[in-house]
Design a protein around this nucleic acid. Structure first.
Lengths: 156, 156
DNA sequence: TATTGTTATACTCTATAACTATA
DNA sequence: TATAGTTATAGAGTATAACAATA
């Protein structure tokens, strides 16, 4: 008997994570640093506060990550044009090139995974995945009130 | 247009990870420590070497994890009956109870996720998931030779 | 006053290297 | 010699709290 659905989903998570890590062995880039670079590529130059929200870590942790990435030549801190307190963290050309390649790898992996599924199975597979994702979202929302909800309750 | 397949798989990973973490807020249990306890529940009392292999970390890291879990009252080090060098890390009744509950939650989540998928979609969904898992395994095996393969090559 | 980011401090996880005790 | 585990040391990531500069 094959292993349970949940175990296969967890196995998929594990393999996807390995695939991500494999792409950066030999560089000074760890998973949290790659994540920061990835966000910068997606949304463009950002303040550290914005990065803290996207990465779901404290502003202090972003400072440390940006320090490391600056030392490695992956990002630079530029003054914010409108706000003297803030900086705009910006990818260097080196890092922008790496992230563009990572984006290509991402697209290629997407294609490889779709290709692996029998065409006849694809619609049901995608519906099933969406259903699982939605259910997971509901379960988490039900049991773990969001930050916004906690704040609203406090405000009463 | 909905987001791509790969992004939905990554989103699923992220939500599963959150669900796992949510279960242990308020305790002194971090993700690596929970992982160790989980392995102990699955395979029974184990040497630290065995745990190091299962967790894919160094023996030194296992020492640190076991130290922390011992201090928290979750595991005890018992002498190995046949090997004076080794210890058998064993769950305390406290931790065994927590892990049994975690196993139940795991089973309940499994049922909730299957329930979320339309019965008519389930066979194709499972085939698709298996296909994705297999393809991911192939890609990783092709590009990242296993430890065993590296060792065999060195032995030539 | 509120916000942005840094300095100060501490804890966890990880790793390598050297060492002890046992096989 | 080889293996199991620890001590010593170091680096990364995370967090909270106090502070500086700017809004």
């Amino acid at each position: 008997m094959s292993s349970a659905l949940l175990d296969r989903l967890l196995a998929t998570s594990s393999l996807l994570q390995r695939d991500m890590q494999r792409a950066f062995v030999g560089t000074s880039l760890s998973e949290p640093r790659i994540h920061l670079l990835w966000v910068l590529q997606q949304v463009g130059p950002s303040t550290q506060q914005t990065l803290a929200e996207k990465l779901e870590v404290t502003a202090r942790s972003v400072s440390a990550l940006v320090d490391g990435l600056t030392a490695g030549g992956y990002v630079v801190r530029r003054p914010h044009p409108d706000d003297g307190r803030a900086v705009l963290v910006t990818l260097t050309p080196l890092a922008a090139g790496m992230m563009a390649r990572m984006q290509e790898d991402h697209t290629a992996l997407e294609a490889a995974l779709i290709d692996a599924v029998e065409p006849a199975d694809r619609p049901a597979f995608e519906r099933g995945l969406d259903a699982v994702l939605a259910r997971l979202g509901e379960l988490l929302a039900a049991e773990a009130p969001s930050y916004a909800e906690v704040e609203a309750r406090r405000g009463r």
